Amino acid sequence: MTERGTPSEFARWVEPHLTAMTRYAGRRVAPADRDDVAQEALIRAWQRWSTYDESRGAPVAWLIGIVADRCRRHRMRQPAGTVVELVDTGAPAPTYDVDLERAVDGLSHRQRLAVDLHYFVGLDVATMAEVMNCAPGTVKATLHQARARLRELLGDDDD
């Protein structure tokens, strides 16, 4: 691969995907660590930018893969039982649906990945297929199965 370009060119290239990268990091690590992990992923992406091959997929798929790797590494570095000290920033605390979060955690790894990428990160099926390294039909089936499992876990008896 050839050298890609300047830092400002990289910034323009990666900027449309920053929200997806940060959202995905926020789904995989503690909220307090989200921005640090996203920053680590950006550094790694800059270092490896010359290896990106556009014929193998969209930039966001490549970048999400790097975020996933940085999240795994971050979790491995955290000692078991780590206590995180919360700092009051004055900003409103994010709201979470605890039941939904527990239900999503009850999904298989592949189903959780599909739910995170589609509903929390906002990726389309084609991009998800690139990230998950499978066919778009497999993504659709995985989402269908995940929704059915979530209904079961949440006790939705409206059927």
Rank of each mutant, 00 (worst) to 15 (best):
R70H: 03
A25E: 00
V121L: 03
G81S: 10
L107I: 05
T2W: 11
A20K: 07
L107F: 01
P7T: 14
V14R: 12
D99K: 08
V37F: 02
G57W: 05
Y24R: 14
G106M: 09
R75Y: 03
A68V: 04
M132F: 05
Y52W: 15
R151I: 01
S108K: 03
V139R: 02
A38L: 05
F10N: 09
D159F: 06
V121P: 04
A25P: 04
A146F: 07
P31T: 02
V67E: 06
D124F: 05
A80G: 05
R110E: 14
A38M: 02
Q47T: 11
D99Q: 13
R12T: 14
D159Q: 05
L86P: 01
V84H: 04
G65W: 03
D158N: 08
L107D: 02
V139M: 05
R151F: 03
G57D: 06
R147H: 13
W49N: 11
H17W: 14
T95G: 12
G81Q: 04
G65Y: 03
R12S: 14
M76K: 12
P16A: 13
T51D: 15
V14Q: 11
R12D: 14
D35P: 00
A103V: 00
A80S: 10
P59T: 11
A80K: 09
D156G: 02
R112P: 04
L113W: 01
R73F: 04
M128F: 02
G106I: 04
E85W: 00
A93K: 12
R149G: 03
D124K: 06
L154A: 00
L107M: 06
A146K: 01
D53C: 09
H144R: 13
E15V: 13
T2R: 15
M132Q: 10
K140D: 06
K140G: 05
S108W: 01
R77M: 07
A20R: 03
D99H: 08
V60Q: 04
E40N: 10
T19D: 15
V131I: 09
G57E: 07
G57H: 06
E54C: 10
E130I: 06
V84K: 03
A93P: 07
V87E: 10
V14E: 13
E101P: 00
R102M: 12
D36N: 06
V29A: 03
R149P: 01
G65L: 10
G81H: 07
D99M: 10
H74L: 08
Q39K: 10
L123K: 03
A61S: 12
H74C: 02
G65V: 03
R34S: 00
R70A: 15
C71Q: 00
W46I: 06
D157L: 02
E130S: 07
R72L: 08
A25C: 09
L154R: 05
P94E: 00
R75C: 04
G26F: 03
V60G: 00
M1D: 11
D105F: 07
T138K: 08
T142G: 07
Y96F: 13
E3C: 10
A11S: 14
K140L: 14
H109V: 15
G57S: 07
A45M: 14
A148Q: 13
F120D: 10
C71G: 03
Y24P: 10
A91R: 09
L150G: 01
T95C: 11
K140E: 14
A30V: 09
R77N: 07
D69C: 11
